[in-house]
Write a protein that binds this DNA or RNA. Sequence first.
RNA 1: GGGAGAUUAGCUCAGUUGGUAGAGCAACUCGUUUACACCGAGAAGGUCAGAGGUUCGAGUCCUCUAUCUCCCACCA
Length: 721
Amino acid sequence: MINQDKFQKPYNPQEIENSIYEKWLSSGYFNPDNYPENKIKKNKEGQEETFSIVMPPPNANGSLHAGHALFVTLQDILIRFNRMNGKRSLWIPGADHAGFETQVVYEKVLEKEGRSRFALSKEELYKEILDFTLSNKSYMEGQIRQLGASCDWSRELFTLDDRVIKTVYNTFEKLDKDKLLYRGKRIVNWCPKHQTSLSNLETNYIKRKDPFYYFKYGPFTIGTVRPETKFGDKYVVMHPDDERYKEYTHGQKITVEWINGPIEATIIKDKSVDPKFGSGVMTITPWHSTVDFDIAKQYDLDIEQIIDERGKLLPIANEFAGMSIKDARPKIVEKLDSKGLLIKVDNEYEHEVAVCYKCEREIEPQIKAQWFIKMKGLSDRAVKALDEKEFRILTEQHEKVFRHWMSNIQDWNISRQIVWGIPIPAKICIACDHGTVDLKDEITSCPVCSSEVKRDTDTFDTWFSSGQWPLVTTDYPNGSDFQKYYPTSVMETGADILFFWVARMIMLGLYLTDQAPFKDIYLHGLVRDAHGKKMSKSKGNVISPLEISEKYGTDALRMGLIVNNAPGVDMNLDPKKVEAYKKFANKIWNATRFVLERTLNYSSSLTYSQNITNSSDKKIYEESLAKIKEITSDIENYRLHLASEKIYDYFWHQFCDIHIENLKNRILNNEDKISAQATLLAILRNLIITLHPFMPFITEEIWESIKGENDDLLIITDWIN
RNA sequence: GGGAGAUUAGCUCAGUUGGUAGAGCAACUCGUUUACACCGAGAAGGUCAGAGGUUCGAGUCCUCUAUCUCCCACCA
């Protein structure tokens, strides 16, 4: 029976969205276990067809932003489409504790309250961040629901759940056994503010002009922007073929006057020095420079720490000890100048300095004992998998970037000196600093020197555990989901975390299962404001997807996010565009009302197309089916930006503007009326089905009024094929 | 230093395998005709950055130039 009362009022998304979502939830259809058996497609081998997506777990440390709204929309469209196409479709939601990211957010909270993380014990800090994260997590889940995500909440996983930790620990141990893990004293990117090491990906480079100083160093001239590191410089390096310095030999010792009096310097000849840069001579500071460290290691030179973890000079700096770099630099230059050792200053020197990607404080390279994963073999396997099409990257430009990064990969530092994360299960020798993997917490003495050991206090880089996300969410290695849904169908996420996350998931997935964790990779770009500007709080141009959704409706927001927004490229979100799709929702609503008013004598959907007898009606019906076929093919090939545009255009400018306009006169004038009515109803029904993945709320609401007696919810209704 | 990409209507962007350019917004004219003014009808707007080339045919493929954007990276 058709209920048309509700169509007397304009469409109001706020009134229906919550109840529709509740209806879906109580139907159980978000969970593929509840999929009606008779609808499931089987492949040639008689196996059920499945479709699966692992949701990139949003960081549980704030509200959802436009990027989240975009990925929810894209993934929900794919899931709904495949669900309607007879596949058991699983979308696994999650929440990310987001280690360093969240700790940084929480430190800002502390700062506002005038507190410091360093005044808290590790346990206290962990507890506070956990409470903060869990409350954000439930808030965030509500927002994902508001966006219409048809994910299976019964399978939701948090990145600190026991199942995750267990898998991560086993992987850590396996890497150790396979000799892909080592603990090494190496130069790491050290952030003096956050007091932790960072991976290369967590550093940015900013262009800066700094004074470049030339100093007299014995018979040589050396150049530097960092005089404060030069206290311990007792090696002077030049290219072996540099004619200017041929009188000096490798290993030769000379005495030079330096900052705090005369020192003995040793000549090193090494090809890494560029004779064309400056004077072609440099001194090295191995503790605080990667290049210098490599040279020092090669020739087995002494390595001395000059600057501590807080960015202050150590006792080696004599009268400057305890001073910060910033304060000390001009004073050191002054002293060198007064000793007649300053030759000149170039104030126009432009270079790039590494900074912490969160606080922009200059990275202070330090030598630290950290856990590293050898990446070369893992990356080779990933590239081979790509070559052999074990998975594909749908956007060509990203495939190129991926290959480039993979072939230049470096070992991965997975240790972080923060409390908010998964503790590294290892023991460290107090005497020799040797690290031993110890999942069961049973090792009490160092296997190398038998000395006492302590627990490693570091935690894993978040991305080490996230890198195993498709495994843990499908319950690797023995869960039935793992058998059924791994490898997943598609990984849809932001192009900005291609290296952070996608690359690591591929490498770890291949390492553990010999299968890439997903078949297709769909990457979306950044969501910018209406004029292509990056959204930022300071610019005040942040568009909250939840506000937009409340104002224009979730369906309109979803359309605004995807129509004509091509995969892989940055996209602009213009509220005016969303408004246009709010009008579209209203158009759909009114068109439905009109069609129902003129066709009330039809109540069973099954008879619709059978009553199309007029030959021109048949033709437009066939044309509508052809259009749907085209749209279907676009969705199957991830061209959602085209599919959404086509369904919009067809509904409005063909179905409404032309077909309804023409047929309504025939109905009024009683010319082949039944065929005209049947045509309108049949096309409307098919279009509502086709629109559903894009605009799930309004279509489900309309479906209630147009479905046949034997039809279930639209979410589970068969696609038009 | 290395890499990837962009340049199409006033603005923001589509254009899938090469076949005489499309959408939304803005602006213009007309229209309240009984689904819808959150509307309809109509008109306007582009030598597809520039120059060469391949082709019967190029926004689409190739080369170069200009401008812009992003990513990666241990040159003192």
